[in-house]
């Protein structure tokens, strides 16, 4: 479980997050929603140690993450799939996966085989450079690379960005399935609120760095004011 408490993050004088508090539970998907500039990506970057907060705390199973380095947070089992997917284009599919498996406690060959079994397209393209993959395939590769080390927490930043609706639906279904089968704590940052709310258990809505809603996903999905003013969803 990830617990975020009174988190404030700033870029110089500009506050990107102000007193943000919420919990992301194990075996559940917590969607973080909001418009551009709401602070969603900053939140994930702060959880994974890429950005230091001004105040507040982030804990994972009791450990304070704000005092730790990014690489140590990753080694604790917190996997962050960054916006734009973050695959290394100059590496082959297999090299990208091997890089993800470095911190895994299990045998690398076995981990690779299990990811190829889960995502057969990656097995077929294992010798191809990642920059030759389609957008959807890159998203699958970045998720597989995050999952290969058997993480406890999965932070996903805009996995639907730039993908066709059908591919987005497949990716969302995969996230839902993985969360249940691997007992993952998933924090899903999305601008595509309707897709995210369809699979999320819980939702946090941000507006210019402030939490404006923190509730069960179905309740957020039905709230007309939230839908209209913060999520850009029109019935």
């Amino acid at each position: 479980m990830i617990r975020v408490q009174d988190l404030t993050v700033a870029y110089g004088a500009v506050k990107a997050l102000v007193d943000v508090t919420f919990e992301a539970r194990t075996s559940a998907i917590t969607a973080v929603l909001g418009a551009n500039g709401a602070g969603k990506t900053t939140l994930l970057r702060t959880i994974s140690g890429l950005k230091s907060p001004v105040a507040g705390s982030i804990t994972h199973d009791g450990a304070e993450l704000t005092l730790m380095k990014t690489e140590d947070i990753a080694r604790m089992g917190i996997a962050h799939v960054p916006e734009g997917r973050g695959v290394i284009g100059e590496f082959t599919v297999e090299e990208n996966l091997r890089l993800g498996a470095l911190t895994a406690k299990v045998d690398a060959k076995q981990s690779l085989a299990s990811q190829y079994e889960r995502f057969p397209i990656l097995g077929e393209r294992r010798r191809q450079h990642a920059d030759q993959l389609s957008g959807g395939e890159r998203q699958i590769l970045s998720m597989a690379r995050a999952l290969i080390a058997n993480p406890a927490v999965l932070l996903l930043d805009e996995p639907s960005l730039g993908l066709a609706p059908l591919i987005t639906a497949q990716i969302m279904a995969t996230i839902k399935e993985l969360c249940a089968s691997e007992n993952l704590t998933v924090i899903l940052v999305e601008q595509n609120a309707s897709s995210a709310l369809r699979i999320a258990d819980h939702a946090v809505v941000l507006n210019v760095g402030h939490v404006v809603a923190n509730d069960v996903a179905s309740v957020v999905a039905e709230d007309e004011k939230l839908r209209q003013y913060y999520l850009g969803m029109v019935r």
Binding site: K69, E71, A74, E90, R98, A149
Partner: peptide, 24 residues
């Protein structure tokens, strides 16, 4: 080698490497 993989990854994508636990 895995060390070589980490050296190359750190040079090409330091932030992504950190997110994967590489001590850049």
């Amino acid at each position: 080698t895995n060390l070589g993989l980490q050296l190359r990854a750190s040079a090409l994508a330091p932030e992504v490497s950190r997110l994967l636990g590489v001590r850049v």
